[in-house]
Amino acid sequence: MDSYRDATDGTERAGGMSANETMLATVGIGDAGPAAEMVALRSNIFEMTAKAERAVLRPKETGRWSHPLRAALAARIANLNGVGDLAVRYAAEAGDFVGLANPASDGTAEGLGPVLAFMDKVAVNTRNVVAPGVSTLQDAGIADADIVRLSELNAFLAYQISVVTGLRLMTRCKP
């Protein structure tokens, strides 16, 4: 198997960059073919996207949100957006939190009710997020740094879902 050196932390990682890039794998873009040639035009951007994914899903400094919980939240956001195959990829990393990937669960049992309400609204009703959305989390005892971490996770997923949707359209609706 190929390996590459991760520029963010210098470690040697197994697998080619494309194999490690959730977005391209979800769309089904491999190392060859017309779609691969197309994304190769912006290979730097896809490499940086893979780094961003690691920074929000698997950071070294997790704050209050563990890696499995982050994966569950990512799967939930993908489900809310109807991107089931992306949700399945993240749900596989969600461990004990996998139930939260289902948007019907409200997180009360896990003590995450306000967090899930916030994440759902930011994900699919962004325009109507107002100041009380943030103060509700602060009132629930969540530190500002952890609110920023939640927002970054949510924001990255929105980007990833948009790119997956757009690339799918490009490859399915051939010119």
Binding site: V122, T126, G133, V148, S151, A155, A158, S162
Partner: peptide, 11 residues
């Protein structure tokens, strides 16, 4: 901007 909006508009 799906990304940037969710930081700027939310935070």
């Amino acid at each position: 901007f799906a990304w940037a909006n969710r930081l700027m508009h939310v935070l």
